[in-house]
Design a binder for these strands. Structure first.
Length: 564
RNA sequence: UGGGGAGUGGCCAAGCGGCAAGGCAACGGUCUUUGGAACCGUGUACCGUAGGUUCGAAUCCUACCUCCCCAGCCA
């Protein structure tokens, strides 16, 4: 259920409540305008999706507007690659910024003018203290800071110095522009924060036109103001920056957006910080930002997630101000919920066990009609070839079955989905005693899956015709981290100690029914009784490659696990 | 021991003074040509703690406890 389709009135979280109160009070002339303001220094992840859905959802719900703006104020960490990926991801998630794609760098000249205004008001000064000295002068959490000796330079001197900074007269680190607020403030953000620093770095958009760049704090609030953002929604850690943003807006006498903070998303069994995700990529713990195990949007997309499932998830987790860790099982639930209704079924055997139907004529092939999706008859049917030699799943046979195992066993009869009842009459083993083949017989009267005499079987197995099946590789993914909280480690260890060594299992020799031939990367299927899969971009016509998106819920797995 | 936030069943989360929604998870069961899906059922939540106000408090007041964020010329 995309946010775009639920314009139903009524607050569903505390931010909606605030907005509705504003609307009732006639604030902003009834206007609602939000934005998503990423820094292009990494890939977007599921936590960002929460913010995107929140902001875009609000714009849709209250008939407002939504901007995409890059807060690109630090050229040393940003890159066009990130801009491209972010644009792709936000669009894929379904948020529409129409023609309002902006960059904080679009406002560099304006921001510079704002700085001049503060200097002229005697509210900003050029400080020649070194970075270390500034830190020392800032004081601590419990002790007030000290004023810089350069704090009381004249307006003229500050203007001249700032002009020189812009002109490039000084090397990096020589001096900074600082706001003149209160070195004794209990809020460290108010202790004369740095506004501009010298960075002789080429900016991915403005090139070399600037060698001074505004700090995020000096750019963010004003950018929102410039864009007429009515509700600046951000995460909790910016709560104590709010007084600073308010100070800028007041001193500059410009439009005043309202900042509202909410708790960022945390998910069990994964990490959601850019720093840690970057580390996983750099250290080769995963194959890249779009590794299907990554909680990045690109990773989830490659894994087979749908935007709808992610939106539904973001809807269900709610929005509050308390730090929380959402169970990743909820994300997976939303995924299954969505996939179940729209993804076609297909039969595939991951770990093949050869089955020969002794009484089935050699060379004969029958085409069985199979339903593409029992949840949606409109998806039609397909023909699946059946012949004398088949493959079934190794797990579907046990020579010495325990009590609740209903599947195939010596002498037992089961149903082959959409085909016949078969009975196991013999088990063929190799020299090591491994079962390598099953000899079975079929009952021609059970074609279609029912016995005219009314006898029942307790299990239905999926299968594939050996002569017709396509070879494939399956990549089975599991949680990236073993512990719900990856940061729960022993002294001296870090989160990588909790990495799941089995987060990727490659099953090289699988067989899938021929109907999937030619499927494009990204195509999703449910391999019946196993899991949802999608075609990976690594797939070739010769060798199909499938990613396991999410497994089916498996009651037998639970029963089996309990038995052990 | 400065400032800013938060504490409701295993995990999220409603609740805004009148006698604790919902979802996920878990556990039973029904049904089933996916042990899938669907459907039905199962939790004495002393609402962080202790006091107080009130006929009545998760909701108001006081104190305390615990957790998170802030000392980048990062965002």
């Amino acid at each position: 259920m995309p946010p775009a389709e639920i314009p139903a009135p009524g607050a569903t979280n505390f931010i909606h409540e605030i907005i509705e109160a504003d609307l009732r009070a006639g604030k902003n002339g009834g206007r609602v305008h939000t934005r998503f303001p990423p820094e292009p220094n990494g890939y977007l992840h599921i936590g960002h999706a929460k913010s995107i859905c929140l902001n875009y959802g609000i714009a849709k719900k209250y008939n407002g507007k939504f901007n995409l703006r890059f807060d690109d104020t630090n050229p040393t960490k940003e890159d066009q690659e990130y801009i491209d990926s972010i644009i792709e991801d936000v669009r894929w998630l379904g948020a529409d910024w129409e023609d309002r794609l902006f960059y904080a760098s679009d406002y560099f000249e304006q921001l510079y003018e704002f700085a001049i205004k503060l200097i002229k008001k005697g509210k900003a000064y050029v400080d020649h203290l070194s970075a270390e000295e500034i830190r020392e002068y800032r004081g601590t959490l419990t002790e007030p800071g000290r004023e810089s000796p350069y704090r009381n330079r004249s307006v003229e001197e500050n203007l001249a110095l700032f002009e020189q900074m812009r002109r490039g007269d000084f090397p990096d680190g020589t001096c900074v522009l600082r706001a003149k607020i209160d070195m004794a403030s209990p809020n460290l953000n108010m202790r004369d924060p740095v506004l501009y620093r010298i960075l002789h770095a080429e900016h991915h958009r403005t090139g070399n036109t600037w060698c001074i760049y505004p700090m995020y704090d000096f750019a963010h609030g004003q950018s929102d103001s410039i864009e007429g953002i009515t509700h600046s929604i951000c995460t909790l850690e910016f709560e104590d920056h709010r007084p600073l943003y308010d100070w800028f807006l007041d001193e500059l006498e410009i439009y005043h957006p309202q900042q509202i903070e909410f708790a960022r998303l945390n998910l069990t069994n994964t990490v959601l910080s850019k720093r840690k995700l970057l580390r996983l990529v750099r250290d080769g713990h995963v194959r890249g930002w779009d590794d299907p195990r990554m909680p990045t949007i690109s990773g989830l997309r490659r894994r087979g997630y749908t935007p709808e499932a992610i939106r539904d998830f973001c809807e269900r987790i709610g929005v509050s101000k308390s730090n929380s860790i959402v169970d990743i099982a909820l994300l997976e639930h939303c995924l299954r919920q969505d996939l179940n209704l729209r993804v076609p079924r297909v039969m595939a055997v991951l770990r093949p066990l050869r089955v020969v139907i002794e009484n089935y004529p050699e060379g004969q092939v029958e085409y069985m009609e199979a339903v593409n999706n029992p949840e949606d008859p409109a998806m039609g049917t397909r023909q699946v070839p059946f012949s004398r030699v088949l493959y079934i799943e190794q797990d579907d046979f046990m020579e010495d079955p325990p009590a609740k195992f209903y599947r195939l066993a010596p002498g037992r009869e089961v149903r082959l989905r959409y085909a016949y009842f078969i009975k196991c009459v013999d088990v063929v083993k190799d020299a090591r005693g491994q079962v390598v083949e099953l000899r079975c017989t079929y009952d021609p009267a059970t074609r279609g899956g029912d016995a005219p005499d009314g006898r029942k079987v307790k299990a239905t197995l999926h299968w594939v015709s050996a002569a017709h099946a396509l070879q494939a590789e399956a990549r089975l993914y599991d949680h990236l981290f073993l512990k719900a909280n990856p940061d729960d480690v022993e002294e001296g260890q870090d989160f990588t100690a909790n990495l799941n060594p089995n987060s990727l299992e490659i099953v090289p020799n699988c067989w899938v029914e021929p109907s999937v031939a030619g499927a494009a990367p990204g195509t999703r299927y449910q391999f019946e009784r196993i899991a949802y899969f999608c075609v990976d971009p690594d797939s070739t016509p010769e060798k199909l490659v499938f990613n396991r998106t999410v497994s089916l819920r498996d009651k037998w797995a639970k029963i089996a696990a309990k038995g052990e």
